[in-house]
């Protein structure tokens, strides 16, 4: 097993390539191209431990923390991650209905207004301890309320029953 390559700070320069992929040039001259950044902890660590995977789905390196790398590199990576991970942030609950055993939600998100169904309120709505609420709809799409305490009262009253 070869030693894992960790990127801690400015030892690598990462540039956006296309289609949510990047190229990476190390300070020692090594060059890795066509890499796909993915979060190792998509729920609990949005900016930490970003793995870079090559075309053969082999990990090339891990970035320990986006906050510690070069600003341009960070920008390139964030662009890829934003493209790859689509977890719309719910800003308001516009409607909530219960029909035929399905919860029908209409929400406003940073991607626009969306309607979706929740099959099982027990397993598909997760109330995390940091105030986040995660939803998984009947098509396996994800949504997030970043901070339940910041929702307006009307929205809170609608969602409260499912938390």
């Amino acid at each position: 097993m070869s030693e894992r390559l960790y990127i801690n700070a400015d030892e690598a320069k990462i540039t956006y390539r296309e289609f949510a992929r990047v190229d990476m040039q190390m300070y020692d001259g090594r060059v890795f191209t066509d890499l796909e950044p993915r979060r190792l902890f998509p729920l609990s660590g949005l900016t930490k431990y970003i793995t870079l995977i090559d075309r053969d789905m082999k990990e090339v390196a891990i970035i320990r923390d986006l906050d510690h790398i070069l600003p341009e590199s960070r920008q390139a990576l964030e662009k890829c991650l934003d493209e790859y991970y689509m977890i719309p942030k719910i800003t308001a609950i516009l409607d909530r209905k219960e029909k035929n055993g399905l919860l029908k939600y209409k929400v406003d998100t940073n991607y626009g207004i969306r309607e979706f169904d929740i099959r099982n309120r027990h397993s598909d709505i997760k109330n995390l301890y940091d105030g986040r609420v995660l939803f998984r709809d009947s098509d396996d799409n994800r949504y997030e309320i970043p901070d339940i305490t910041k929702l307006d009262k009307k929205s809170w009253l609608k969602i409260n029953i499912d938390l």
């Binding site: 289609f19 689509m86 977890i87 799409n141």
Partner: peptide, 19 residues
């Protein structure tokens, strides 16, 4: 077709080499 997290993308690779 590239399935990502909560979304997917369809790319056409053209015979001209452009994707």
């Amino acid at each position: 077709v590239k399935r990502m997290y909560g979304n997917a993308r369809m790319n056409f690779k053209m015979k001209s080499g452009e994707e």
